[in-house]
């Protein structure tokens, strides 16, 4: 590459984004008419330069900063989901459970005195958890159920929560209150149902705390908070 060619080449960026003065632009234009290699390069740079206009200048400073990172807890939850050869929600697709009652009762939930009844061992034979401690919230409005299962894991405790009869789309945040007195987030889920199958889906969450260290569960459903000791 001759020095002149190199000089023209290094002007192609400024040419591509329209930053050359008229004389410089004329020189580059003349070169491009006779150099297919530079013409191709200039076109690809022009397209790249055009994409920059999509970026909001207000976030320019953040481009040098590290991206926000998801919590390690999210990674554990996702990996737990993907360890299961048959995702929990798919297990519900066999039609055994017909939970959907179409009751928009988020408001009623707020007024309900909720207590958590732990059923140690056993099971109803149709839940997705086969071991650990099953639980069910009591004193809920008719048609509403909150049930689940706590299962010891090598990495902590798996928490499966099943909600039914709540307003669809309600965001639920689950926390565990530990014996150390701390409130630890265990994940969020949104109450969903399959409108075709009329089935609700369980949420599979996890916490790094051992089951023996968990004193109570806290569920925030929309603006309401429910807590009960174990």
């Amino acid at each position: 590459m001759s020095p002149e060619h190199r000089q023209i080449r290094e002007s192609l960026g400024a040419w591509a984004v329209g930053h050359l003065d008229p004389d410089e632009k004329a020189a580059v234009d003349a070169h491009l008419r006779s150099c297919s290699e530079c013409r191709e390069e200039a076109e690809s740079l022009r397209q790249a330069g055009a994409l920059i206009s999509l970026v909001d200048p207000a976030i320019a400073d953040s481009l040098s900063e590290p991206l926000p990172r998801p919590s390690p807890e999210l990674g554990r939850r996702v990996m737990a989901e993907m360890r299961d050869p048959e995702p929990a929600a798919e297990k519900m697709a066999d039609g055994r459970r017909r939970w959907w009652l179409a009751l928009p009762v988020a408001g009623a939930l707020a007024a309900a005195a909720v207590s958590l009844v732990l059923v140690l061992g056993g099971g109803d034979g149709e839940g997705t958890g086969n071991s650990g401690q099953q639980f069910a919230f009591g004193s809920l409005p008719a048609g509403v159920t909150i049930t689940g299962n706590l299962e010891p894991k090598a990495t902590g405790t798996g928490i499966e929560v099943r909600v039914d009869g709540m307003k669809p789309g309600t965001l639920c945040r689950v926390y565990v209150k530990t014996s150390a007195g701390t409130l630890e987030p265990a994940g969020t889920f949104r109450y969903r149902y399959d409108t075709d199958e009329h089935e609700s889906y369980p949420a599979t969450l996890s916490t790094a705390w051992d089951l023996s260290e968990i004193d109570s569960l806290v569920i925030r459903a929309g603006p309401e908070t429910f807590e009960t000791g174990l």
Binding site: R9, E10, S11, G13, A14, V17, H19, L45, A48, G49
Partner: peptide, 13 residues
Amino acid sequence: IKSRVYYGLRAMR
């Protein structure tokens, strides 16, 4: 500045 615009756009592309 001009040459860095060139190499910067190339790297971005």
